[in-house]
Amino acid sequence: MKPFRYERADEVPAAVATLLREPEAAYLAGGTNLVDLMRLEVTTPEVLIDVRRLTSDRIEELPDGGLRIGAAVTGSDLAADPRVRRRYPALSQALLSGASGQLRNLATTGGNLLQRTRCPYFQNVTTPCNKRLPGSGCSAVEGYQRDMAILGASPACVATHPSDMAVALDALDAVVTVVGPDAERRIPLTELYRLPDATPDRDTVLERGELITGVELPPPHSAARSRYRKVRDRASYAFALVSVAAALEVTGGAVRDVAIALGGVAHKPWRATTAEAVLRGAPATRESFVDAAAAELAAARPLPGNAFKVPLARNTMVSTLLELLEEAR
């Protein structure tokens, strides 16, 4: 571990200013991922700027019936919030399916969104990785591929985004609020993350110095139900091989509205817009769900070591939608 300085800012502008002034600085919130990466020397900041007390740790009602979640709200608090559990069950389920109780007590909402991939080559400084060291090559594309992406990957990077929470937020049309050097801006979660293309070292569209201050959830539709299903070999304490966050609204046997996001399959939470388009207005049946999943996964480009994720994602999408349909009855 490289020696570093620790600083605590009193307000957001000061934190942003400090980060912009320092050539190698990082924001520290819960630290559950950042400190691991520093120990491994995957990242070696000279300064840590503690922002944990700068953003809200509260969940507040919005006038439109939605919720505003402060960036410092912990995973435990967010998962346990009665409003979240009642109105956005997929979000609570996603949080509880990830990490451990100890980690959720420490990890924050803002930090969760910005956690880095757990690609084993990214985390091992003795192997090439374009995300860690641009231009060094991708070890995973011809290496151990089991956890890698099947959608939206590039020859430069096949890593997957590890967050469960972000997949649920993606399906729930969340909006991230960000403060930067100039002004505050609002970024729909579907646009926060990048695909790797030729520059996989950049996970998100955030500019240098920008700090996530919160996440806003639009009001759920009264008739919509949501669910998060995470698939993995081990029943807990494992990242998703495939996960599905879905919300479904059915009227008169037809799909009135639907939102689907996939985890474990891409460099970002994968909003299944193709499947959604197939389903809107279609009969709410297994056949429709199978067609929609197939349409979405037509774009999949699996590697030999993760081809199983295509049928796995298809089956998990279909079974999650069927469970929501059953729930609606």
């Binding site: 084993p120 091992n124 081990r234 029943a235 304490y237």
Partner: peptide
């Protein structure tokens, strides 16, 4: 080298299993 050289990646039965 062993690629999955930590407990996040080398899976041992957890209590839930």
């Amino acid at each position: 080298h062993v690629v999955n050289q930590d407990f996040a990646q080398y899976h041992i039965a957890s209590a839930a299993d």
